[in-house]
Design a protein around this nucleic acid. Structure first.
Lengths: 347, 347
DNA sequence: GCGCCGCTTTACAACGTTATACGACCCGAG
DNA sequence: CTCGGGTCGTATAACGTTGTAAAGCGGCGC
C-alpha cells in the first residue's frame, strides 16, 4: 500500500502537519526537525498523493491542450513546446485532439472530456464565436492560432501580416520580381486575408506592381490544393519567378507542379512556405518557410493560463508571437544563381 | 463556486449519498427518487469533482503515454490512436515526450513527472532493462515498440520479421531481383536485426541469392544515415534494383541519393520504407512503406493497462500487432514498367 | 524568578466523494 | 395485529492533504 503522511509521521514520531510542512518547504521548521522528518520520508519512500492535494487545494496541476491533430508536425512541435513550458511551472499537460471538427472543439471548450483540468489551451479550426459565448465553464481558456474571436479570452497568434511581409521581402531580396501568392481563401478566412495583405504591402513598399493575376484562391489548405492553384496560375499563362504559399503543404504541392512543368526550384521559381513543418525539411528540394516561434507560443500560452489562474490578471490579452524565416533549398540556391549574374527569365 | 453533492442534496431535500447513488447509477433507487434528484442535478448544473472521486477510489482515470517525440508523425499517429482508444474506455491520456533519452525515459518509467496516473504506456528508445528492473512503482507499465526486455511487463510490437518479409515480397513481386537492405545497425539493435532476418528469409524463400554486399549498416536512423548508406552501396559498385530501408526517413535519404546519381525511382530502383510516416506521402516521389497497425497498437496498449488495473490478469502478455504495406509511387510505377515489358537493367 | 513574546509544533477541520453499516419502511404471512 | 424479510434511504466514517488557530517551548527583559 502507498505510504501516506500519517505513516511518515508515526515513523518520525511527529505530527502529520509537521511532515506536511517539511514536504512543502514551510519556513518555520528547525533544521534538526527537518532532517529527522526527511530521513523518515526517505526511509519509507513517501510520495505525496496528488489526488488528495488537488482535492484540498482545488487545483490539479494539469493543463489541457487541444489541437486539431498531431499528425501535422506543426502541432506536434507546438505540443512539445507547451509540454516543456508547463513542466517549467510544475504543471502537466493533457493533450487532446479535435480533428479540427467544430463538434469536438465545442466539447473540448466545455471541458467535457477532461474535468480534471486547471486550464485549457485550444487551437480552434471551425469553432464559432457563438460556441464560446455561452461557455458556462470556470476553467480559464486560452486560444491559439489565426482565427480571431471577439470574446474575452486570451489569444496568442503570430503577426500574419508581418510574417507574410518577411517572406515576400526575402523573395524580393533574392531578385524575384513576380511573386505569386497561393492560398487566398474563398470565403473569408482571416489568416489568409492577413497574409495576402502582407504580400500586397511588401510588394507595394518595394515599388513592385501588385498583380491579382498572381493570386490563387483555394478552398482547402492541403497539398492537392496547392498543386491545383499552381496549375491554375501556370495554365493562366503566368510565369512568376517566386511563389509564396499560405502554408508548407501547399508550397510543396506547388513545387511538385513546377517540377512537372519543367521549372526548376529555386533557379526558375523560388518558393517560400509557411509554418515550417518538418515535412518541408525532406523531399527532393527542401522548403524555405516562415517559422512561427513555437517555443514562444507554447510559453506564452502556458503563462497566460497560469496568470488567469492566479487571478491577478483580468484584462484580456492578445499576444503576437514572433517568427523567423528558415532558408532552405527552395530559395537558397537562388542566391547563388543571382550571384552568378545569371538571372533566369521565365519564358 | 462549484456545486457539490451537498448542494444538490439540499436542493432535492435528500441525503448526500442518495444523490451520489443517482449519479453513479446505483441500482436500489426508486424511479421517482431518481427523477427528483436528477431534476436538482440538472437545475444546479452539478458536475462531479474528479479530484475527490479519485481520492476516494484511488483511481484517476488518467493513463500516461510517453513517446520519444511528437515531431515524428509515426508517434503522432500512435498518440492519436491511444487517445481514441482510451476515450472508448472513459479514460484520459496524459502525453509526455522523452526525446528518446534514457534519463527522461527512466524518469517517466518511475512516474516521476506525473504521479496522478493509473497506468503508463511507454515507448522506449534507450531505456535499459536494468532501469526497469528496480522499478519500485505500482502503476502498471506497458511497453511499446521494438526493443525487447526480458521483464514482467506487457509488450506490444509488430512482428518485424513478418513485416520485413512482406516488404521484400512486395519488391520481388514487382520483378526486383537485387534488393538492398539499408539500416542494419552497428551494435546490436534488435529490430534492425529482425528486419534484416526477414529480408534474408524472404529472399531465400524466393530462391534469390542473399548478398551481404547489399546490406548497409548505419549508426543512426535518420535521413542522413540513409543517404550515406545508399552512397556506400553505390560507390561499392553495386546497382540494386530495389531498396528496403529500416525506416521512412532513411528510405527518403536513399531516394535522394538515387536521384542525385541519376537513377530513377521506381523505374530503376524501387524503394520501400518502414513505419508509414506521413512525410513519405509528400515529396517528389511518394514512398511505399510498411504501415504498422497503429490503431491496433493503441487499442491493445490501452486494454493491457486497463486489464492489469482490473487485477484480473497477472500473466505477462507479449502481443504482436498487425501491419500492411501501403503502395505509393516509389514502387507503384514499377508495376507499369513491368507491364510494358521494359524491365530496365541497371548498368 | 516571573511574565511575555516569538518561534515551532500540533490538533482539528475541511475539501467532495463513496463504502459500510444501519435504520426506516412496506408488504405479505402467521 | 405483529413480525420477518426484503427494499430503499441515510448517517457516519473514511480517502490524504493543507489552512487555521491555538498550544508548547524556549529565551529575554525586568
Amino acid at each position: 500500500m502507498r505510504v501516506s503522511l500519517k505513516d511518515v509521521a508515526a515513523h518520525a514520531g511527529v505530527s502529520i502537519k509537521t511532515v506536511s510542512n517539511v514536504v512543502n518547504d514551510y519556513q518555520h521548521v528547525t533544521p534538526a526537525m527537518r532532517a529527522r522528518v526527511q530521513r523518515s520520508i526517505d526511509a519509507l519512500g513517501y510520495r505525496p498523493n496528488l489526488a488528495a492535494r488537488h482535492l484540498r487545494k482545488g487545483r490539479t496541476g494539469i493543463i489541457a491542450l487541444a489541437l486539431p491533430e498531431f499528425g501535422n508536425p506543426y502541432f506536434a512541435e507546438l505540443a512539445a513546446a507547451v509540454i516543456d513550458a508547463a513542466a517549467e511551472h510544475d504543471h502537466i499537460v493533457l493533450l487532446d485532439h479535435t480533428g479540427g471538427r467544430r463538434e469536438q472543439e465545442v466539447l473540448v471548450s466545455q471541458a467535457f472530456r477532461a474535468r480534471v483540468i486547471d486550464g485549457l489551451i485550444l487551437s480552434p479550426i471551425e469553432l464559432a464565436a457563438d460556441d464560446l459565448r455561452d461557455r458556462a465553464e470556470d476553467v480559464p481558456l486560452v486560444l491559439l492560432g489565426e482565427r480571431e474571436y471577439d470574446l474575452p479570452y486570451d489569444h496568442i497568434a503570430i503577426d500574419n501580416v508581418a510574417a507574410a511581409r518577411t517572406a515576400v521581402r526575402h523573395l524580393i531580396s533574392l531578385g524575384c520580381r513576380e511573386v505569386a501568392f497561393i492560398g487566398a481563401r474563398r470565403g473569408n478566412s482571416e489568416p489568409a486575408e492577413l497574409r495576402l495583405r502582407g504580400w500586397r504591402a511588401e510588394l507595394t513598399s518595394a515599388g513592385l506592381s501588385v498583380d491579382d493575376g498572381l493570386v490563387a484562391a483555394t478552398d482547402g489548405w492541403g497539398y492537392g490544393d496547392g498543386a491545383a492553384a499552381m496549375v491554375g496560375i501556370l495554365t493562366g499563362g503566368r510565369r512568376p519567378d517566386a511563389v509564396f504559399a499560405y502554408n508548407d503543404p501547399m508550397a510543396m504541392g506547388a513545387m511538385r507542379v513546377l517540377h512537372e512543368w519543367g521549372l526548376r526550384v529555386p533557379e526558375d521559381v523560388a518558393v517560400v512556405g509557411f509554418d515550417d513543418v518538418v515535412e518541408g525539411r525532406f523531399g527532393a528540394v527542401t522548403l524555405t518557410s516562415v517559422s512561427p516561434d513555437k517555443g514562444a507560443i507554447g510559453r506564452l500560452a502556458v503563462e497566460s493560463v497560469l496568470a488567469r489562474l492566479g487571478g491577478t490578471t483580468s484584462e484580456v490579452r492578445r499576444i503576437r508571437a514572433g517568427h523567423r524565416i528558415v532558408e532552405r533549398e527552395s530559395t537558397l540556391g537562388r542566391r547563388h544563381a543571382a550571384n552568378d549574374g545569371t538571372i533566369r527569365v521565365p519564358s
